[in-house]
């Protein structure tokens, strides 16, 4: 079981990061939402394996919560927003796609160098993977900074959140349930608020391209 568990955690943690990087590659906003769902699944898998391995019921509940919120509710809500303007694509990101992918590669390497001391604190197999969580956070940040569409930026924000969650699962084998609950609810709240905001934006300006917001209007 331990061998299989290690392998599963490895694969799932890498999948979380790989999905984040894929987010930089895809331009289709709806594909981004799909990727977010995938990331939710992978994250839930990490939590679930950690729960089974540590025989930790709280962590198991967290895993279920992650699955419901991050792979279920949030993507569905964002998917509804995305469906309002079909064919919405990230036109030209602030940094072009190959360049942002190369930067992502550099960020991943940076995360490994910077994250190495975390492993030294508590040398187990799962803390060794913690730099992947850090790399996910950095990649999410890159997505947030370089994309023009509001929805893509929301995805970037959620990727950051997933990265933080991944880091906590790997480092501490899960935070207390109440903390995770709070964090997840925050995310949910953010999504709901942004969804409302985007709806208003579209009604007022007819689009959700953030470059249109650079000047004040009546």
């Amino acid at each position: 079981m331990s061998g299989l568990g290690d392998g599963l955690i490895d694969l799932a943690a890498v999948a979380v990061l790989a999905v984040a990087v894929a987010g930089l590659w895809r331009r289709d906003v709806r594909a981004l939402v799909g990727l977010l769902r995938l990331q939710g699944w992978a994250l839930a898998l990490v939590a679930a394996v950690a729960a089974v391995r540590g025989r930790d019921v709280g962590l198991g509940v967290t895993a279920a919560l992650v699955l419901v919120v991050k792979a279920g509710v949030v993507p569905v809500l964002l998917g509804r927003v995305a469906r309002r303007d079909p064919g919405a694509r990230e036109g030209a990101p602030l940094i072009n796609v190959p360049a942002s992918l190369v930067i992502a590669a550099a960020l991943v390497a940076l995360a490994v160098v910077v994250g190495a001391p975390l492993h030294a604190l508590d040398p187990t197999a799962s803390t060794a993977l913690a730099p992947l969580g850090l790399a996910t956070v950095l990649t999410g940040y890159l997505l947030l900074v370089t994309r023009r569409r509001a929805l893509s930026q929301v995805v970037g924000l959620l990727v950051i959140d997933n990265g933080i969650a991944l880091t906590t699962f790997l480092l501490t084998s899960g935070v207390p349930l109440i903390v995770e609950l709070g964090g997840t609810l925050d995310v949910l709240l953010v999504v709901v608020v942004i969804r409302a905001l985007l709806g208003t934006m579209r009604a007022r300006f007819g689009g959700i391209d953030l470059d249109g917001l650079s000047e004040l209007r009546d």
């Binding site: 890498v14 190959p98 590669a105 991943v108 390497a109 490994v112 197999a125």
Partner: peptide, 22 residues
């Protein structure tokens, strides 16, 4: 096409990094 190849490049970098980390 460079985007596709850049994606392949990032996958390769991830492969090295993950191999070192894990």
């Amino acid at each position: 096409v460079p985007e596709l190849l850049a994606a392949a490049f990032v996958l390769a970098i991830l492969a090295v990094v993950v191999g070192v980390v894990a």
